[in-house]
Amino acid sequence: MFIINCPFCGERDQSEFKAGGEAHIERPKQPTELNDEEWAEYLFMRKNIKGIQFERWNHAHGCRKWFNMLRDTSNDEIKLIYKMGEKSPIE
């Protein structure tokens, strides 16, 4: 159990949220020009690293808004939370 600071509602228990996978994956501009391998890469392949990872989260049982999070997957330490549509501040 840990606390997540929703950018709209404030600090809430993790059980109110749903994790939405890796963040900042861009849809290819011209999917028709990709071969199967490249399309699969976009569709299925995720970094899933042990360590600091960019993720999307949804405040599913609160304001129902999506936002981005920078989280250390090894110890659940949340480094940063920022709104949807904002560029990742690191990298």
């Binding site: 509602c9 809430r12 059980s15 109110e16 049982h61 609160g62 304001c63």
Partner: peptide, 10 residues
Amino acid sequence: VTQTLLLQID
């Protein structure tokens, strides 16, 4: 006002 879970119910 808050929205939350009570007994796993919204």
